[in-house]
Design a binder for these strands. Structure first.
Lengths: 201, 201
DNA sequence: GTTTATACAATCACGGATGTATGTAAATGA
DNA sequence: TCATTTACATACATCCGTGATTGTATAAAC
């Protein structure tokens, strides 16, 4: 029964968040018990209830951490003055984030496959502000491409952006379901390249 | 305490399956209690346990019903000798199934948003035989399109098929999240049209 | 016309998870 | 230095869902 300092307390809070992510991923959110989270974090439920109100609170706290990499890594800057290449790079960056940021990857997997969107989680279904912003940036990039004449003629940039957005949704979903060594993962970047190439004039 | 005939028993079995779908959709699979399913079906848990081993068994029984419409409604027959129009029609048919077969729609929504893929449900994550067959048919149709010279040159039919498959995944997912009156639903067929048009030579 | 199996309803025993209340030792602040 | 708050651990009460058991009236089989 040693009382921890503030810094140590912040550490256990992070340990609990990490443990929650692992247990959520293994057991699913609904079946996850705070007892297991506590055990995985090397503490008791007392500590969990000290830092978080309940499982829902813990879940949303864990979720917050995951969106961060996207906002500063996924940008639509043009590459060599070509908006389409900028889009290709941004899409590829999303996949790279899934590859080399395991915490983000796990959290998104939890949100995709280990969580039921009912009651207090219903709100998560609607497109997040981040997603809407991504879609808007995508449409803007396609408009720039159209203005430069590199977008295939006769296609509405907004519609093409939607198509790309849905493609990316599906890509992420299936990428998360593929095994680390599976060919689908290696092919993902090829799929992105083809996807963008289809839109080029 | 009246004993039902075989036909009546089969009816209550269907009532239980219908009730399960409704309750799964409302509460999510994990939070659904067999007590609520029984109540929604107008029976007691005794009846549920008589017809089904447990909640998992009930879930898989409900799932079986949903895949049926796809196999006989979604076909890739060419329209006016044009494989690409056949693809467009097939994709549109998927959306139409979601519109006018509410039971199928609800089941897919449960599988997409109201179910955690852990333990006994893990297996559902991998692409089903039906999905693989769909993907194969799609690739075959694109190959026919390439052979006829209507597919845009320089693109691998298999890769294009994957792209379409992922697009459709995302489309279904977001269609399910949209409200009945929302514009996204009306736009879905336009998105499909554009998607296919992008692949045309 | 019995007998038997069926199609449930009602009851029970049990574990397991939650939230809260309480305990406690040490860090922190005055 | 001493009171107070902090950061947990421990203990407790409660409820809820499950699976199994038992009860039972009646179809169905012979």
């Amino acid at each position: 029964m040693v009382r921890n300092t503030k810094e140590e307390a912040e550490l256990t809070r992070r340990h609990i968040l990490d443990a929650a992510r692992r247990v959520f991923l293994e057991c699913g959110v609904a079946r996850t018990t705070l007892e297991r989270v506590a055990a995985a974090a090397g503490v008791t439920r007392g500590a969990v209830y000290w830092h978080f109100k309940n499982k829902t609170d813990l879940f949303f706290a864990m979720r917050e951490q995951a969106t961060l990499p996207f906002v500063d890594r996924v940008v639509f800057d043009e590459v060599e003055g070509d908006p389409l290449q900028g889009i290709e790079r941004a899409l590829g960056e999303v996949i790279h984030i899934l590859s080399d940021e395991p915490e983000t990857r796990e959290t998104i997997e939890i949100l995709s496959y280990k969580c039921e969107y009912v009651e207090e989680f219903s709100g998560l279904r609607q497109r997040t502000a981040g997603q809407l912003e991504f879609l808007a940036s995508l449409a803007a990039a396609y408009r720039r491409a159209a203005a430069k004449g590199v977008l295939r003629a006769g296609f509405d940039p907004a519609v093409v952006a939607q198509d790309t957005f849905l493609f990316l949704s599906g890509l992420i979903k299936h990428w998360l379901s593929s095994e680390p060594g599976e060919c689908f993962r290696a092919d993902a970047l090829d799929l992105i390249r083809s996807h963008v190439a289809l839109r080029r004039a």
